[in-house]
Amino acid sequence: MEMEISGIISAIVIGIVIGVLGRLVVPGRQRIGILLTIVVGIVAALIGSAVAAALGVADTRGVDWIEWLIQIGLAALGVAALDRTLATRR
Score class of each variant (00 low, 15 high):
residue 1 M to E: 14
residue 2 E to R: 14
residue 2 E to K: 14
residue 3 M to H: 13
residue 3 M to C: 00
residue 3 M to P: 00
residue 4 E to L: 08
residue 4 E to K: 11
residue 4 E to V: 06
residue 5 I to Y: 14
residue 5 I to H: 09
residue 6 S to Q: 08
residue 6 S to A: 10
residue 7 G to R: 00
residue 8 I to V: 12
residue 8 I to M: 09
residue 8 I to H: 05
residue 9 I to T: 11
residue 10 S to K: 14
residue 10 S to N: 09
residue 10 S to E: 11
residue 11 A to K: 06
residue 11 A to L: 10
residue 12 I to N: 04
residue 13 V to F: 09
residue 14 I to T: 12
residue 15 G to M: 06
residue 15 G to L: 06
residue 16 I to N: 02
residue 17 V to G: 09
residue 17 V to Q: 09
residue 18 I to V: 15
residue 19 G to K: 01
residue 19 G to P: 03
residue 20 V to E: 14
residue 21 L to W: 11
residue 22 G to Q: 06
residue 22 G to Y: 05
residue 22 G to M: 06
residue 24 L to A: 09
residue 25 V to W: 11
residue 25 V to Y: 08
residue 26 V to S: 13
residue 27 P to Y: 05
residue 29 R to F: 10
residue 30 Q to F: 00
residue 31 R to W: 09
residue 31 R to P: 00
residue 32 I to R: 06
residue 33 G to S: 08
residue 33 G to H: 10
residue 33 G to L: 07
residue 34 I to T: 15
residue 34 I to H: 14
residue 34 I to V: 15
residue 35 L to W: 12
residue 36 L to T: 14
residue 37 T to M: 09
residue 37 T to A: 07
residue 37 T to G: 07
residue 38 I to G: 03
residue 38 I to V: 15
residue 39 V to I: 15
residue 40 V to D: 03
residue 41 G to V: 02
residue 41 G to F: 00
residue 41 G to P: 04
residue 43 V to R: 01
residue 43 V to W: 04
residue 44 A to P: 08
residue 44 A to W: 04
residue 45 A to S: 15
residue 45 A to W: 10
residue 47 I to K: 02
residue 47 I to W: 02
residue 48 G to M: 01
residue 49 S to K: 10
residue 49 S to V: 04
residue 51 V to F: 07
residue 51 V to N: 01
residue 51 V to W: 05
residue 52 A to Q: 06
residue 52 A to M: 04
residue 52 A to Y: 02
residue 53 A to Y: 12
residue 53 A to N: 13
residue 55 L to Y: 08
residue 55 L to P: 02
residue 56 G to M: 05
residue 56 G to Q: 07
residue 57 V to R: 08
residue 58 A to T: 02
residue 58 A to C: 07
residue 59 D to E: 14
residue 59 D to A: 08
residue 59 D to W: 10
residue 62 G to D: 10
residue 62 G to Y: 11
residue 63 V to I: 15
residue 63 V to C: 04
residue 65 W to T: 12
residue 66 I to A: 07
residue 67 E to R: 15
residue 67 E to P: 02
residue 68 W to L: 14
residue 68 W to F: 13
residue 69 L to T: 11
residue 69 L to Q: 10
residue 70 I to N: 03
residue 71 Q to M: 13
residue 71 Q to Y: 06
residue 71 Q to N: 10
residue 72 I to T: 08
residue 72 I to F: 06
residue 74 L to A: 02
residue 75 A to T: 03
residue 76 A to K: 01
residue 79 V to Y: 04
residue 80 A to W: 12
residue 80 A to C: 00
residue 81 A to V: 07
residue 81 A to G: 02
residue 81 A to Q: 01
residue 81 A to D: 01
residue 82 L to W: 08
residue 83 D to E: 08
residue 84 R to E: 05
residue 84 R to F: 07
residue 85 T to I: 12
residue 85 T to C: 00
residue 86 L to Q: 13
residue 86 L to W: 12
residue 90 R to G: 13
